[in-house]
Amino acid sequence: MCFNSPSYIHDPGNRPRVIVIILIALLHVSPILSGAVTFKAPSGQILGRTGALNDDAWSFFTNPAGAAKMVVPVAGIGYQNDYLLNELSSRSALFVVPTSLCVGATGFSHYGFRHFSIQNYSLMAARELAPWLNMGMRFNYHLRQQTGSKNFGLLTIDTGIQFFPDEKVSIGFFVSNPGQVKWDLDEIVEYHPTFVSSAIQYQPVPALKFELGVAKEMELPAAISFFMEGPLHPQFLMRGGAATSPLRLGIGAGVIWQSLMFDIGLNHHSTLGLSSSFGILFNLPSIKRRQSEAGI
């Protein structure tokens, strides 16, 4: 939508070697690292969406490639609550800065409660390598705290791509923890979740999105998801989604008001009940844009 207008596109230039080196780094050469998504974005995973084709600032918590087309700095905060239980809630903050080299971002999320929590500190870089290709990479440091135990840390990487075979079609692929890194918890060693997803999106008209995706966490059954988003008003987006394994239904909305965007998403599980996610993004005025508006 207008909040992330794709009017500014990086000039990919003629740098094939750099591109390929980045590509390899992104996809495969760093399998020793891993990552996991703990915050379910209000415009993405809370609705059952795979996250492979998120294209707003919340991509920071899903496919980092989705932030590649952002043109202005964005700051955001979010709160997510599984099954309306405070103990299973997550809090997050992020800050996205587009530069001439790439779109950089940093952020934080905190999951859990007083006796058990996981904090994630992340750094992300995304770049539009060609008009038909976005790529992104995210470094995460996970800090695990548990009462009566020492703290444990883990460094991970998430990577993803999005490509656009057609003006109306987008395809995304996202992998978190490609190297299947393990937590070494002194007495036990356990895998950090590996998550992989892919989705295809069709936009018959701008801002109206239909998305079909598949997501798989290594130890869980694959989930197929359907998502749609459409504007009821230029400043009001409605979202809905459904995902399998188990069946979950999601509904959400996005409201744009001046430089702010409010996103909310609800998810219903037939046995466990409702989960919710809420976030606010603040669109910081771009220096470039201000210079441009001022005619400098």
């Binding site: 390929v20 590509l23 390899i24 495969h28 992998v175 992989v196 598949v214 290594m218 059954p221």
Partner: peptide, 30 residues
Amino acid sequence: AEPGFYLAQDVRYRSPGGKWNLITRYALMD
């Protein structure tokens, strides 16, 4: 029996002029 699942992404790059190329794949299977 659980269904078998496989999801993979291939990326191929061929340098202009074809002097070198690179192919990568990441696949998850269950």
